[in-house]
Design a binder for these strands. Structure first.
Lengths: 246, 246
DNA sequence: TTGGAGTCTGTGATTTCCCTGAGAAACGCA
DNA sequence: TGCGTTTCTCAGGGAAATCACAGACTCCAA
């Protein structure tokens, strides 16, 4: 099921209308806090654990609809945690967090069952998007929930990564795509450059804040070029996207 | 019966509309877990057993539509298990798992009755495809439902392994065929290299991720050569297949 | 009208990612 | 056993994407 909040954001809900529950497992507290905040912002109910023991325990009580699981935990191997989780909750989808430089064969098999993974350092938008995908496909949320975002005559398909405006296909790079997705998931709402940087770029990004300006300018060239603009600047505040007509 | 899920994937169902039931029997827990995950993702109901005793027991209660049976079990010979299974469920199709170097003729005799086998280490796509075939032919699923995948003017016959585009027959190697099947079972959907590796290559493959790139390049030569391309790269995300027209 | 803060965008360096040729090793079949 | 086929590794080339930098531009207030 989906509902639309007063701010115009679309939320995933469980079939009975209650909020989606997600368990976050990582031993670095800064990571669990970062994730908890971002996922609560999605309207989800979050519980977190710092080790394998706690994860298994929490899963049993909390019965989450999805789990975010770091593969490097102090007390147990990630796969062992997975096995224990699956004993209690056979169908729960899992989003694995792995280190970028981890040996590739440790990653093997993680997507086999419909699970998914992201590498550290990740961007919050990426984690949220993949979690939404997992929850959608696992059927914890109503099956009807679409993978297509629409604002005015602009559409973005999260499965095929296709974007089009007024019927014309638009090719976007990975970063442009993530930025546009963030804007379109928050239509008619001003997003500050800091917010955008926090959500779309990975958490260890150390560069200049004006990459946001740069990528907004790229997007405008591709999306607004020669048309009624949809991306607007609120000087001193940030950017927002809205249908061209209004 | 088949239904098409919102993601566009086609699911097998039983004549009464309930999910297909599969019993998985293997003494290695990592194998039963891997298979359970992958088969659940097909929308099937899974039960697993770790030895012959448990298998017979589970089959009696669970009444599966198909069984995946490792030939090397700790307590009983594979043939003995098969005999006992057949006493309770005379018509249930069985997919045997055998070691690579197993005596081939013993297996060959078994498959005469409409059963099938795969050798370890297997790829998940192969197991799923063969199970689908068994279930389809056994009539547990409603129809002689399609064994032909179609995307645009490209067709792939899962029974005969014939592939053609626009009427021209195309010869593919085994790996190319599996890769194309996976793509065509998920049309218009970006599949990451990790996902492809996990499904199409066998679970113990420890090689470089760029075999995927390599085989995509082989497929392009055979399928897209001199035509409107159907296989597309989404840089930094993966690959997808879609009809040439759109 | 002017100055400054904030924003936009052209240029190019760097990095990342993807493609493909060549050849080694493994396989399958006669 | 020997030969053709298939699978896979390795490495080079090239294209695309990312980002820093800097100068141009815009808006607003004094």
């Amino acid at each position: 099921m989906t509902t639309t909040s007063p701010q115009g954001r679309t939320e995933l809900l469980r079939p009975d209308g209650s909020p989606v529950r997600v368990l976050v497992v990582d031993d670095e507290q800064s990571i669990t806090e970062l994730l908890s905040m971002a996922l609560r912002y999605e309207g989800w109910q979050i519980r977190s654990a710092g080790d394998g023991q706690g994860a298994v325990q929490s899963a049993r009580e909390f019965r989450p609809d999805a789990v975010v699981l770091d593969m490097m935990l102090p007390d147990m191997d990630g796969l062992a945690v997975l096995g224990r989780l699956r004993r209690d909750l056979p169908d729960v989808p899992v989003l694995f967090l792995t280190a970028k430089d981890a040996v590739e064969d440790r990653i093997a098999g993680l997507t086999a069952g419909g699970d998914d993974y992201v590498t550290k350092p990740f961007s919050l938008e990426e984690v949220v998007a993949r979690l939404r995908g997992l929850i959608r496909r696992a059927g914890a949320a109503d099956r009807r929930s679409e993978s297509v975002l629409v604002v005015g005559d602009l559409t973005l398909d999260e499965d095929s990564h296709e974007v089009s405006r007024g019927g014309d296909d638009i090719h976007l790079t990975a970063t442009e795509f993530e930025l546009l997705r963030f804007l379109m998931r928050n239509p008619r709402r001003v997003l500050s450059k800091a917010q955008i940087l926090d959500r779309v770029w990975s958490y260890d990004f150390g560069g200049q804040a004006n990459v946001v300006e740069l990528y907004i300018s790229y997007l405008r060239r591709k999306i607004d070029a020669g048309r009624e603009p949809m991306i607007h600047t609120r000087r001193g505040a940030g950017y927002l996207i809205k249908p061209a007509a209004s």
